[in-house]
């Protein structure tokens, strides 16, 4: 069987790619995609830990399903906010949103 560490490294890489997208992308949709990548890294972690550490209890799997569900709800609210921002500002470029600063 593939050792646990390999899964953890893949998940950590996925998490870092997601975080990089959140920090560097200007388009809010792309930022949201980065956040989804981070959440998927978490899911990968949870399922891998479940398989290798507590295969008898379903905790990790259940947790992952909850994360997927909540991520969907969060994306729905996020996209609704993006639409109202687009209507008011004419763009969802997060760098151009600077009516308020300091």
């Amino acid at each position: 069987m593939i050792p646990l560490y390999w899964w953890l490294i893949v998940a950590a890489a996925l998490f870092c790619i997601g975080l990089y997208a959140v920090l560097s992308r200007k388009n809010a949709i792309a930022v949201l995609m980065g956040i989804e990548l981070m959440l998927n890294a978490v899911n990968l972690n949870l399922v891998a830990f479940w398989r290798y550490i507590t295969p008898q209890a379903l905790t990790g799997q259940v947790f992952a399903i909850f994360v997927i569900t909540v991520a969907a709800a969060e994306a729905a609210v996020g996209l609704a906010i993006f639409i109202s921002v687009y209507r008011m500002h004419g763009s969802i470029n997060v760098e151009k949103l600077d009516t308020m600063r300091w």
Partner: peptide, 19 residues
């Protein structure tokens, strides 16, 4: 929804919060 600042506040809060 029709306020420039309120929508901007929401998107900033959302992006920081989700991350």
């Amino acid at each position: 929804r029709d306020d420039v600042r309120s929508t901007e506040a929401a998107i900033k809060y959302f992006i920081y919060g989700a991350a």
